[in-house]
């Protein structure tokens, strides 16, 4: 009852009243309150994330094979928090810490894509069928549309690349977006009808 029925009733009441607030200005104050709660709960989600991460990695300290990784993570997590509290995010040491850890790490992870794409271009993009050939040709035009060398080779490359992005790509993206929106609406209806309860936990 406390674990499933009450959370279920709360979610139905909040969900339906939020939808109705769009049509009924009388309950706009209720909607404003819900907006505030949402912002506060999002902020708490960050805190819960940090607590959960800490619990997992403090447990890992007892496992020799994971000790080094978990220690690094704990030092990084709490080091950033302590530095931020002492110096604020504008402090010299905080900025150096940030610039020497997160910036190169995130950039390095993203830049790996370049290496994977290059090897994939060699191994996967093969003209095995008509569809694969069309995809390969489209990829070449879009690729060179984004860099100066494309226009330097032939002025038609950026024109064709832009057409591919504006027409076929936009049409496909619109279809995907509409499909996802319909899917989200269907899920919301299932939640309101009580058919979808997996968000309450318990594996249903």
């Amino acid at each position: 009852m406390y674990r499933r029925t009450i959370p279920f009733i709360i979610s139905i009441v909040i969900g339906l009243s939020y939808i109705l607030s769009g049509a009924l200005p009388e309950i706009s104050a209720w909607k404003n309150l819900l907006d505030k709660w949402f912002q506060i709960s999002t902020a708490f989600a960050v805190l819960i994330g940090a607590i959960s991460l800490s619990m997992v990695h403090f447990r890992n300290l007892r496992r020799p094979e994971r000790l080094i990784y978990s220690t690094t993570l704990i030092i990084a997590l709490y080091g950033t928090v302590v530095l931020g509290l002492i110096q604020t995010s504008k402090g010299e040491l905080y900025q150096t810490w940030y610039n020497m850890t997160i910036v190169p790490l995130e950039a390095a992870i993203l830049s790996q894509i370049a290496f994977y794409i290059t090897t994939a271009a060699f191994r996967v993009l093969r003209m095995r069928s008509l569809e694969a050939s069309l995809m390969l040709i489209a990829a070449v035009f879009v690729m060179f549309y984004n860099v100066p060398v494309g226009a330097a080779v032939w002025q038609g490359i950026p024109v064709i690349g832009k057409w591919l992005m504006d027409i076929p790509n936009t049409a496909a993206m619109r279809a995907i977006t509409m499909g996802a929106a319909l899917g989200a609406s269907a899920t919301a209806i299932r939640v309101f009808l009580g058919l979808e309860r997996s968000y309450l936990g318990g594996g249903e």
């Binding site: 290059t118 271009a121 060699f122 993009l125 093969r126 003209m127 095995r128 984004n146 860099v147």
Partner: peptide, 20 residues
């Protein structure tokens, strides 16, 4: 970025030539 795109293009051609 231009040079890396040229490399990707050359590898695409090489990959396809070797395939055929």
């Amino acid at each position: 970025q231009s040079l890396s795109h040229i490399l990707v293009f050359v590898l695409m051609i090489l990959g396809n030539v070797s395939y055929f």
